[in-house]
Design a protein around this nucleic acid. Sequence first.
DNA 1: AAGGAATATTCCTGTAAAGGAATATTTGTG
DNA 2: CACAAATATTCCTTTACAGGAATATTCCTT
Lengths: 116, 116
Amino acid sequence: MSGNLPGMDVTTLSALAEPNRMRIVELLREGPLTVGEIADRLGLRQPQASKHLKVLSDHGILEMKAEANRRIYKLRAAPFQELNDWLKSFQRIMEDRFDNLDAYLRELQMKNHEEE
Amino acid sequence: MSGNLPGMDVTTLSALAEPNRMRIVELLREGPLTVGEIADRLGLRQPQASKHLKVLSDHGILEMKAEANRRIYKLRAAPFQELNDWLKSFQRIMEDRFDNLDAYLRELQMKNHEEE
DNA sequence: AAGGAATATTCCTGTAAAGGAATATTTGTG
DNA sequence: CACAAATATTCCTTTACAGGAATATTCCTT
């Protein structure tokens, strides 16, 4: 009966829900960067930068291109599209259902009298 | 020089980045519900449901209305708007900057030759 | 081939947070 | 006023994960 909802992937959110990773994402909006530059600009140690980048990559938020010694990371569009789609499916319902407390209160009333 | 970016609140994301809390949010799309119903429908124990609801409320994702014995929780629009705005500020940049690896590679080249 | 960048990985430690169980609190009802 | 229902809170335990430090790996340069 119930349609198959988009079902936002929570692990994508948890990957973004870490301050330094969010800073990395914000930084990469300006364009692709190497690990070293990311670490420098954000005042992170290289190992922690690498670890965060790995998490973000594993969740498909970033993609990496090896260029000689350097690894260049850049944003991927997909997860943001997914987030956007999920939000859109919300907006539709927002106007309708969020605020009909009254209907629900009447419903509660009914159940109360029903079960006695 | 740099504009003040939206700056998505990571704590909002972390509140959503928990499976049971996400399930609560999805459930409440259908309309407001009491703690008991939320716990029932999701197969959660009441205390855990209350705890998750508190987290969601503390982050402004839900709001609560006390109705006699019951507490009715419902979604708030604000955080979703915030998320939406943040995403929008992304979309704009997506097309332009995400993919100009070439420019960045040339830039790297230059720096390499520069510093010698 | 050797040394040095740039990056990834491993190990350790501390901390935050989620679930379980029990209990407190509030409110309605007989 | 006593009891029961609905919800919140506390305490405990376990687990996930972020940072620090050290080390491994890869690739360039000479």
